[in-house]
Amino acid sequence: MNNQTTITRRDFLKLSGASALALTALPAFDGQALAGFLGSEQAANQMGILIDTTKCVGCRQCQAACNLRNNLPPLPEKILPNQTFPAQLSATAFTNVQFFQTGGAEDAPVFTTIKRQCMHCLEPACAAVCPVGAIVKTPLGPVTYDAEKCLGCRYCMAACPFNIPKFEWDSANPRIRKCDMCADRIAAGELPACVQACPTGALEFGPRKELIAQAQARIGKNPDKYVPYIYGLSAVGGTSVMYLAAVPFDQLGLNVNLPDSAVPELTLQVMDKIPAIAITVALLAGGVAWWRGRKTRAGEPESSIEDAEH
């Protein structure tokens, strides 16, 4: 006890100043890797779905096909007209056709229908946050989920800016459930089930750059019909599922306040600094321990560290 020096305030200030300086000087990569992928040819060639809400008649055949393909409970025989059913996406509904009144009078409302599903972001937040890589963005385009890896931490649900991943709250072995763009069908050269079922051509499947070109052509041909935006072109860095509409997208329940930068970048900026922070803290702590312990080593009797003062 008596052989120990006490740390002076000046020592302490010196140390904290040094550590603060070291922390600001840390290297960071600022998500450069992400930005590189978003503009790349690979991203442009990934498969996607263009949903033209002006062509959608709200027949729900896409929903029925989706439920069939994914072994989900089938739609009931009778559904009230002009109503979203089921009202929300869930573990048993990966897609639904949502009805929004966008015009007409009280007694004769006009509805716009929009098919909602996983957006299959180019840089998905869900895949970035998954601790075990159970959710991945496959090279073909779909964002897929592997229940065998999953822990059920539900961070993907918390992180998704579109609230897409759903959870089996009533199961002892719960899975995350969401649209996987029929990844197995795409790999086999087939269309996703919903696209194949659509009778009006409101759903278009193809490489993302071709879909974008087509969407721009449609807007260019009918500037009076469409609002001049493609939803999903740049939101959260771009998504594989994109929308065209005749009314502003916020009237169709889509979040128009999302940033154009990829969502995971926010976290990556911090994660990239972690090795540097770890090394800095370790070196600082080691240095202080060595420096403060030098007297003990210089021949003075060492008090046993583990013997608490009993």
């Binding site: 946050v129 998954c130 822990l151 059920g152 089996e168 899975r175 990556l268 994660m271």
Partner: peptide
């Protein structure tokens, strides 16, 4: 108690996603 698939809690040891904050915390 909170993890849905709690029996997979050891997965981060062998299944890596170093970009994930949750992975680092695990």
């Amino acid at each position: 108690i909170d993890l849905g698939r709690w029996y997979n809690i050891w997965h981060p040891i062998v299944m890596w996603n170093p970009h994930s904050v949750m992975f680092e915390i695990a």
